[in-house]
Each structure stands twice: as structure tokens, then as C-alpha cells.
Design a protein around this nucleic acid. Structure first.
Lengths: 105, 105
DNA sequence: ACGGTATTTCTAGAATGATCGAAACAGACC
DNA sequence: GGTCTGTTTCGATCATTCTAGAAATACCGT
């Protein structure tokens, strides 16, 4: 994962509302959670919720599957794992000075 | 770590410039890195850099120690570990439905 | 096709953030 | 005290984000 991608993911999660959305989806497990259920749970305006979900979908942290009229949202574990992997590899270990060809800037 | 704190930390890291700053500090290891060195490395205006460093300091991801006229910045590993811990515990495991007294909202 | 539920898009306003130059401040050194 | 280097604050500008109401769209059941 590249730094800019990681930053984009972190930014997506760096909003309390979106982090709550994401956490709710994680807790929902493999079954996922419909947008409407999220709306009930989190008590935010549908348009606001849609806006935030979109932000999560764009960066790949959340995926959606249509089930009739309802849209089921799923947390994408793989992307989160990549993100955590990036943090651990590049931001938790002192010896993280890699091939410094053009990494600094 | 509470959700709002985690979101604040994620937001602080969710900016390419700040993530670069943080990563540079990690790579600098225990010795840390002076603001001026960061400025040379990242090639951004001093005022902008100061602005971003402050954001990282406020949430505790970075600490500063004065060495004469230069300010040495250090990455705070402990805070990062807590953040990663939060992500892994609350956002990576399906069975993360805790005492749901007032967690949803 | 109509009606109903689910969700998004549009639009807009307030708030916040990023950026940077100029000026101010902090501390060391002569 | 003056001066030099290092860093922050101030002030301004431009862009983005958050929020949500209203309208539009999507899809199902009849």
C-alpha cells in the first residue's frame, strides 16, 4: 500500500461518524448491514449517512450489495488489514528505512 | 481508547503531508528529527510544517523536546500502538460486539 | 402502471482545513 | 545588547468537508 492510499483510508476513518459506521459494519459481521439499519442505529440524516458511506466505499473500506430495494453494506476486512499492515510496517517500527530512492518526499 | 479519540488520531494521520511527517519521525528512530530537518526532507513551507506538526502533537502522536534553538520531534510509539490496538480490536474482528449499553450511537 | 419503501443526488450554508508569506518569538553566541 | 538560526504565530486566501432538507431515482409488490 502506498502512502497516499494509506492517508486516504485513514482520512476516511478519521471522522467519528464514519468510524461508527465502519465499526457497526464490522460488528454486523459477514451478514452486513442495510443502509436503513445503519440509519436507525446511528440516528443521522439519510443524506448525511449516504454521503459518509460513499466516502468509505470510494476508498474500498466498505462494499455494497443490492438486495432488492435495500443496499447491504459490508466492511472490507482485507482493505483494513492492508491499512493496519501499512501502519505496523511503516509507522511502528524504527527500522523502517527502506530503499530510500524517493520515499522521503 | 475511545472511538472519538481514535477518530482524532486517524484524522491526524489521514493527510499525506502529516503521514509523511510521522513516517519520517518513525524512521528517524529514537533520536528524533528536528523541525528544520523535516522541513528540508519534505520541502514544505515552515509555517505549513509547523501547522501540521502541531496537529500531530495535539493528538499525542508526536512529542517535542527542545535542544537549544532546535525542536526535536519524536514519534510517540505508544499512542500509535494504542491506535492500532483499537483498530484491530474494534475494527478487524467480527466478534467485537461488546457491552452494548450505549455503543451504537 | 401505481404506490410504497429504500437510498441517492442536488443544493446550499456554515465550518474547518491547507497553504504560504511576513512578522514575531526563542534561544545561543559574540 | 545585537545578531543569527530555528520555529511559531498571524493574516489571508482558496478549497474542502459536514450537515441536512427536498427532490429524484431504484426496485419491489400488486
Amino acid at each position: 500500500m502506498k502512502l497516499d492510499d494509506a492517508a486516504a483510508h485513514l482520512e476516511a476513518l478519521g471522522n467519528p461518524t464514519r468510524l461508527k459506521i465502519y465499526r457497526a459494519l464490522i460488528r454486523a459481521g459477514g451478514a452486513g448491514l442495510a443502509v436503513g439499519r445503519l440509519q436507525e442505529k446511528l440516528k443521522i440524516a439519510p443524506s448525511t449517512l449516504s454521503h459518509h458511506i460513499k466516502a468509505l466505499v470510494v476508498v474500498g473500506l466498505v462494499t455494497q450489495v443490492r438486495d432488492a430495494t435495500t443496499l447491504i453494506c459490508h466492511a472490507n476486512y482485507e482493505v483494513m488489514r492492508e491499512l493496519v499492515g501499512f501502519l505496523v510496517a511503516e509507522c511502528c517500527t524504527e527500522s523502517a528505512e527502506p530503499t530510500d530512492t524517493k520515499t522521503a518526499a
